[in-house]
């Protein structure tokens, strides 16, 4: 059985004006199912680029990204959208909830895209909202929730379809340390209970501390890769 995610000689270049920026310079790594991994490193080290490529939001300049042994590097836009829809959950730094939808509707959104029937949606959404500690807040709109509660909704939205991978881009950056800690504990619980695979990009020492694997990037290359 191969790794859940394999990255092979991954390179990504960006053109900024006339200058070519080498965001990733040939990276190799594997992530196994059920890992709780933080990708750390200074700004410009390639953290977000790596997550975008694993998350099928972008395509590499060279090299391969394999998810469940399928090379997604040359997938069409539609195929990438299908992978994201079915297998990947995202948690964003700024929560990115849809303001006109209630907490319940925000969490149900990815399931509606998968055309689940309403009873199944109802059951799954209520359960996950309970799991993230938002029972009774289903009908609240994002503006009626605190930052921590909004990020819990975002975590629930990422997990509700039981994806293969959950990618979190600096999930604690907009939260105070207590709330950030709570969110991390929650994600770790869900990782342990549900076996969900989490990959974070972060600057936050607290996230690095709680991750079970820490990959440090520097100048688009893996500087260190440590399992705790």
């Amino acid at each position: 059985m191969g790794a859940l995610v394999s990255v092979l000689d991954l390179k990504k270049d960006y053109k900024v004006g006339e200058t070519v920026v080498h965001a990733l310079r040939g990276m190799d790594m594997e992530i196994e199912a059920g890992e709780f991994t933080a990708v750390a490193g200074p700004s410009g080290s390639g953290k977000s680029t790596l997550l975008n490529l694993i998350g099928c939001l972008d395509t590499p300049t060279e090299g391969k990204v394999l998810i469940n042994e399928n090379d997604v590097s040359h997938y069409s836009k539609k195929e990438l959208a299908n992978i994201r829809r079915e297998s990947i959950g995202f948690i964003f730094q700024t929560f990115n909830l849809i303001p006109i939808l209630s907490a319940f509707e925000n969490v149900a959104f990815p399931l509606s895209l998968l055309h689940w029937d309403s009873e199944k949606i109802q059951n799954n959404v209520n359960q996950i909202l309970k799991d993230v500690g938002l029972e009774g807040m289903e009908d609240r709109y994002p503006r009626e929730l605190s930052g921590g509660q909004q990020q819990r909704v975002a975590v629930a939205r990422a997990l509700v379809k039981e994806p293969t991978i959950i990618l979190a881009d600096e999930p604690t950056a907009n939260l105070d340390s207590n709330t950030g800690g709570d969110i991390l504990d929650l994600m770790r619980e869900l990782n342990e209970e549900k076996g969900a695979t989490f990959i974070f990009s972060t600057h936050d020492p607290m996230v690095m501390d709680r991750a079970r694997r820490l990959i440090n990037l520097k100048d688009g290359m893996i500087h260190s890769d440590e399992r705790k």
């Binding site: 299908n82 994201r84 829809r85 964003f92 990115n96 849809i98 939205r157």
Partner: peptide, 16 residues
């Protein structure tokens, strides 16, 4: 635009 990006990240297709 940002919300559209988020919805696309969640797997919403362009035609949707």
């Amino acid at each position: 635009i940002k919300e559209i990006g988020m919805m696309r990240a969640l797997g919403m297709r362009d035609n949707e």
